[in-house]
């Protein structure tokens, strides 16, 4: 199992880098708590959601998923920094090859997503009446959501050539994924076209699973959601592997 060593090396490197970027780490946590406390409290006063004690209680599963989504996706998308500074080419030239590199990057991004989502999840008992079983189920869903988001992040990073596009990606990819997921408002009340878009969005299924795990009513069903996430993750991983293959990159970009 020689391939385990480079995968472990990539995970150790990424986590080491994340720990040294404390601003980014705390910024990620602050983002989630700001949504929960500031936006959640504000909307509590003006919004009532059917089946939820308060808007804050409704939005809480979505914020857990959001924390994992941003943590995992941004870590995965930071692959573009590695590309810009030549580290990616070095990694892709390792004996284990592209799949090992992507696996390592996906694992480290997943772990970052779990840590950021986990910090929000730990505050769950302050907002909801949760059993230990529900918390355990939510932790499992968090892992699934972080893994799925990390793969989406790799797919987004694959065509990016420069870190200058990074901020645009957050606005054009991450926020729409969040807004069209039912994390902040129920998809049932969306216009038809937006509901259709939500059904195509993997984050919708992550949020729905998280709601069910935390004892709130879901819309999509556990098995269909898990299946959808499994299938999209496989497809996304395959696509990312194809796009990250240096051969494919040079065909698209021309001579080095």
């Amino acid at each position: 199992m020689r391939v385990v060593t480079p995968v472990y090396g990539i995970v150790a490197r990424d986590l080491g880098r994340s720990l040294r970027q404390k601003g980014r780490l705390f910024g990620g946590l602050a983002r989630s708590f700001m949504w929960l406390l500031l936006v959640g409290t504000g909307y509590n006063a003006i919004t009532r959601i059917e089946g939820a004690a308060s808007y804050q209680a409704f939005v809480y599963p979505g914020i857990v998923v959001m924390a994992a989504l941003f943590g995992a996706m941004l870590t995965a998308i930071s692959t573009v920094y590695d590309r810009e500074f030549g580290m990616l080419r070095l990694m892709l030239a390792c004996p284990a090859g592209t799949m090992a590199v992507l696996t390592g990057r996906a694992l480290s991004a997943t772990l970052v997503g779990i840590v950021q989502g986990g910090a929000v999840l730990l505050c769950g008992p302050l907002l909801l009446d949760l059993t230990a079983g529900q918390l355990a189920a939510a932790a499992a869903v968090l892992a699934v959501a972080a893994a799925s988001s990390s793969l989406l992040g790799l797919l987004v990073a694959a065509p990016l050539r420069s870190v200058e596009n990074f901020a645009a990606v957050v606005n054009v990819v991450l926020f729409p994924l969040l807004f069209v997921s039912g994390a902040l408002y129920p998809t049932a009340r969306m216009p038809l076209w937006l509901r259709g878009a939500a059904r195509l969005n993997p984050v919708t299924y992550q949020v729905d699973l998280m709601r069910v795990a935390l004892g709130l009513p879901g819309e999509l069903g556990v098995v269909p959601s898990l299946l959808t996430l499994a299938i999209t993750s496989l497809v996304v991983f395959g696509l990312a592997a194809w796009l990250f293959d240096p051969e494919h990159r040079f065909i698209r970009r021309g001579a080095p």
Partner: peptide, 19 residues
């Protein structure tokens, strides 16, 4: 890697080489 020490950079390379 600017965020890793020299030693960590070398260890990363050694792991990539499957040592």
């Amino acid at each position: 890697d600017g965020l890793l020490t020299v030693e960590e950079n070398l260890l990363f390379a050694a792991r990539l080489a499957e040592l």
